[in-house]
Computed example of a mutant assay.
Amino acid sequence: MYAPGAYAAADPVSIVRKYPFAHLITATGEDTYATPTPIFFETDDTVSTLVGHMTRINPQAQTLQNGQRVLAIFPGPHAYISASWYKTLLTVPTWDYVSAQIRGRLEIIDDDEGQIKVLRRIAAVLERDNEHPWTLEQAPPGKVQQLLPRIRSFRITVDRIEGVTKLNQTHPASDRMLIIQQLLARPDSDSHEIARLMAHLPST
C-alpha cells in the first residue's frame, strides 16, 4: 500500500475495526475478483486472523481455495479538497481519505459449526452497541440452518496490515481550520467525518 511517511496510519488496526465493510480481492488464472463484504477480526483480543463470508452463488466464492493469497481493502471516509480553500500554503486540489489494507492467506470454512461461529462473531460485533443486541437464537426457526449451504465462510491469516490517514497533515493548522469549515458546510457524511478527524490532528 502506498503510504507516504506523513500519511502512514499510526494505528491501521483501528481503521479495520471502525470501517469493516471491506472489498475482498483474489486472483485466479487470468481473472481477478472483488466482493464487498464485512470482514472482522476473529476475536477482540487478537489481530492475527479475520473472518467473513459471501453468498455461495457469487462466482468468486467458487474460486476460493485454502492457502490462497488475498487482499482486503477497508475504505473509510474520503473527501475532495479544493485548492481554493488554502490561504497560507497555496497548492493544487487533493483528496483526503482514510483506508487500510490487509494481505494474508485464506482458509475456507465450509462446515456448519465453523460457519455458525463466523455468523455469531459478525452478529456480536455489529450488534454490540444496540440496546437489545440481536443474536442467532432470535432468527426464525430453521432460518440459520437454511442459510448455511448458501454461504461460504472464510478465515484470513494476516501477513501485513497497512493504513493511510491523509488529512492535510503537511499543511499549516490555519489552513486545516479553513478546510474543516468548508467540509462541514457540505451535506455529505464523508466530508463531515474527514473534518472531524482533521480537527483531532495535533497542531503544527
Rank of each mutant, 00 (worst) to 15 (best):
L184D: 14
R150G: 12
P20I: 04
K166E: 00
V164N: 02
R176D: 00
P12Q: 00
R160Q: 14
A185Y: 06
T94F: 10
A8L: 06
P133N: 08
D96Q: 03
D129L: 08
P38F: 09
V144W: 09
P187G: 09
Y97W: 13
E113A: 14
V118N: 03
I122W: 07
K87C: 12
P149R: 02
L147F: 08
Y7H: 04
T26V: 14
K87G: 09
K87E: 15
D175H: 01
Y97N: 10
A10H: 01
H171G: 00
S153T: 08
L106G: 10
H132Y: 14
P149Y: 04
M177F: 09
H23I: 11
A83D: 15
T43C: 06
A124M: 09
L201C: 03
P77K: 02
R105P: 11
D96W: 00
R121C: 03
G52C: 13
T88R: 11
D190V: 02
P4V: 07
L147M: 15
L148K: 11
E162S: 10
F74C: 09
I39N: 04
M198C: 01
L183H: 11
R152I: 14
D110Q: 10
M54Q: 13
A34P: 09
K166Y: 00
T135C: 04
Y2C: 05
A61E: 14
